[in-house]
Nucleic acid binder design. Structure first.
Length: 672
RNA sequence: GCUGCUGUAGCUCAGUGGUAGAGCGCGUCAUUGGUAAUGACGAGGCCGGGAGUUCGACUCUCCCCAGCAGCACCA
């Protein structure tokens, strides 16, 4: 007999070999039906897998959403692979895990047919529904490595065979059958599990195959290219629909689409990955920049401006040229030869030309500013800020609208401080970042990215650097679930651990923006020092930090977060005065002038168009306030205000409207 | 960078081996209207770039470039 302890503290004694499903049945028929899997001593396991020792057991039902989703998605992936092989025998299967919103499976089409495409998805979906409807039991079996390899080799499954041969020794190798093992139509995959009890536990209406894409065997570019079939999978149709709706919403908010519609910016291939900001888009930038200047000035930073181009020798010394040269833009330091009559397609570069490189980051330049003159411990902390324009030669395939660009401007700063000041500085930064994100209405998670495998610096330095960041977050009161506090092993930069701020936007997506990193490597490499109390030279710690990350990306996030409807203080045009008939033109001009004098970004729309048309246009342009004026308003000295997102209008005297708009147009940090 | 798809008017897109079309936008004219599209007429295109096949290529083939999706990358 073995002893099973349940979550409510009760326990029962059962025969060894009893399954969680049987225990569920003993507790009640309702639970037996609802139970999807079991948590055994904290580990999720199949509900049909026999128990062999004393354990703590908790049954997982669809109420345990995270676990249930993970199980269902993993099962969908298996059903997907089974369906593909049923439809096209000879297809090789590889891996198929759950993802954040569904699942995928990497497969290789047989030679007899072309790689899978979107056109194949409906047939695969149909077959998957059949498999689900058949309610095939999912049965776990342990196999020997030799049997497994033979099985895969016999089946022509080269990828699986390769993987089976490399699975670590000592791990039990398991397969899952879909259908009674060996029976007609039974299918199997090598898998660690766990799985649901049968395919029928899945909802045939709660998944959808979404796309196909190329992926490499084991994620390595050198390996064979497979076809990855993606699906989104949920526990029920309602969840699926909600998710599909979110995707539609995200497509509507796409900053690239809105950027064009709202005339904010454009990209063109003569300057790929670099943004052409139009007047309206740059107005958002200017407001953000002014805001951030006020914030940083108020927090004791000093703003500087450093060179775009520096001698490659400088980048060699900082270590960037050795490690990141392939992502840097370099230019020869030479006068081009213009003698030639030919058009200078490719200027000749002399063999002995010196090379300069455009900065991919601001830190080395900031160290050089810090190093000017002699710094005393009394001068520290030194906080140097820069709206630093950087260039990184990102791979073509990585570029994406404003989110991933080659030229970007960071709200960058470096804090040079003593060892004793690190925690205080990091804590102050946590508070500063918090106030900024709150001003934009974002919630966020704070994460600590710990030392990566490849890194500079001693273990003691890393221990210390990680602990400092932890302590600072604790002191700021953010090391808890409210702030999504989490530590991410192996995710840090090669020179420092980093705190990361992940914003959650209006439709639930997350974006990593802010960061602070405690760096002891660069001050060493560039020989930065200060004179301590003892009269000796000491290394400052260098904190790299940013709150927006980059203006480009942050504006992209804001556009998507607000779906283009920027809060009034950021809106490029805050109000439009629109006339109903031309007899109100004069009055509209007066109203416009008054609003301008009050500092409101206003335009007058005197076009010979119907008011319906004007309302529609300015609503689509997402102008926060529309001030409609006709004969009545002109006579009474009023305006009829229609606010974006509301249906009706309010008639009020011009002065009142100005006061209201002025208030709304005040940046959040200047209120009260 | 890799794989796949796409590239036609300012925008969104249709189209055919015989040098192109729609809607919106733009211009002109008429219309002066009360809160999400007034009507008529008109002007816009080297059909991404290069090479090839062909009597003839926007259309077929190849190469290049860019965009999109995914992968890889993201100091």
């Amino acid at each position: 007999m073995i002893k099973i302890t349940l979550p409510d503290g009760s326990s029962r004694d059962v025969e060894s070999g009893t399954t969680p499903a049987q225990i569920a049945a003993e507790i009640g028929p309702g639970l037996a039906k609802a139970a999807l899997a079991a948590r055994i001593d904290g580990e999720v396991r199949d509900i049909m897998r026999p128990l062999e020792a004393d354990t703590e057991l908790a049954l997982i039902t669809s109420r345990d959403e995270a676990d249930a989703l993970e199980l269902a998605r993993h099962d969908y992936a298996h059903v997907l692979a089974e369906a593909v092989q049923a439809l096209w025998p000879g297809t090789q299967i590889t891996f198929g895990p759950a993802t954040d919103d569904g699942f995928y499976y990497d497969v290789m089409a047989p030679e007899s047919r072309a790689p899978f495409s979107m056109d194949d998805l409906p047939a695969i979906e149909e077959k998957m529904r059949e498999i689900i409807s058949a309610d095939k039991p999912l049965i776990r079996e342990a196999w020997s490595r030799a049997d497994l390899i033979k099985r895969w080799q016999d089946g022509g499954e080269a990828f699986k065979a390769e993987w089976a041969a490399e699975l670590p020794d000592g791990e039990e190798l398991t397969v899952y059958w879909s259908g009674e093992p060996g029976s007609d139509g039974a299918w199997m995959d090598m898998c660690r599990g766990p799985h649901l009890a049968s395919t029928g536990k899945l909802d045939p209406k709660a998944f959808k195959l979404t796309r196909v894409a190329g992926a490499y065997w084991r994620g390595d570019q050198k390996n064979a290219q497979l076809t990855r079939i993606y699906g989104t999978g949920w526990l029920n149709k309602k969840q699926l629909n909600a998710h599909l709706h979110m995707l539609e919403e995200a497509a509507k908010r796409d900053h690239r689409k809105l950027g064009q519609e709202m005339d904010l910016f454009h990209l063109q291939h003569e300057a790929q990955g670099s943004v052409f900001w139009h007047p309206k888009g740059y107005m958002i930038w200017r407001e953000l920049e002014a805001y951030m200047r006020r914030k940083m000035d108020g927090a004791g930073y000093n703003e500087i401006k450093t060179p775009q181009l520096m001698d490659v020798r400088q980048w060699t010394q900082s270590g960037h040229w050795g490690k990141y040269a392939e992502n840097m833009f370099a230019v020869p330091d030479m006068v081009p030869d213009v003698e030639s009559e030919e058009e200078a397609v490719a200027p000749k570069v002399a063999d002995d030309a010196d090379w300069m490189a455009i900065k991919p980051m601001n830190c080395p330049a900031h160290v050089l500013v810090f190093k000017q003159g002699i710094k005393s411990y009394r001068d520290l902390p030194v906080r140097l800020g820069e709206m630093g324009c950087c260039h990184r030669n990102e791979p073509h395939g990585a570029l994406h609208g404003l989110m991933r660009v080659r030229q970007f401007t960071q709200d960058d700063a470096h804090i040079f401080c003593t060892e004793d000041q690190v925690v205080d500085e990091v804590r102050a930064f946590c508070r500063l970042a918090d106030s900024v994100y709150q001003d934009f209405g974002f919630t966020y998670h704070v994460k600590l990215a710990l030392r990566p495998e490849q890194r500079f610096g001693s273990e003691e330095d890393w221990d210390k650097a990680e602990q400092e960041l932890r302590d600072a977050v604790a002191e700021a009161g953010m090391d808890n679930d409210d702030y999504g506090w989490e530590e991410l092993p192996g995710e840090g930069a090669f020179y420092a651990p980093k705190l990361e701020w992940h914003l959650t936007d209006a439709i639930g997506r997350t974006w990593q923006v802010g960061t602070i990193q405690g760096d002891r490597v660069l001050p060493e490499r560039l020989d930065a020092s200060y004179v301590g109390e003892d009269g000796g030279r000491h290394r400052p710690v260098m904190l790299h930090r940013a709150i927006f990350g980059s203006y480009e990306r942050f504006i992209g996030i804001l556009i998507e977060h607000f779906a283009g409807r920027m809060p009034c203080w950021l809106a490029p045009v805050q109000a439009v005065v629109a006339t109903i008939t031309s007899e109100a033109d004069g009055y509209a001009g007066e109203v416009e002038a008054k609003l301008k004098a009050a500092g409101i970004r206003v335009e007058a729309d005197l076009r010979n168009e119907k008011i319906n048309f004007k309302v529609r246009e300015h609503s689509l342009a997402k102008v926060p306030h529309l001030l409609v004026v006709g004969g009545r308003e002109a006579e009474e000295g009023t305006v009829a205000i229609r606010t974006l997102g509301s249906q009706g209008q309010r008639i009020m005297p011009v002065e009142e409207a100005i006061a209201m708009l002025k208030d709304e147009a005040t940046p959040p940090d200047l209120r009260n």
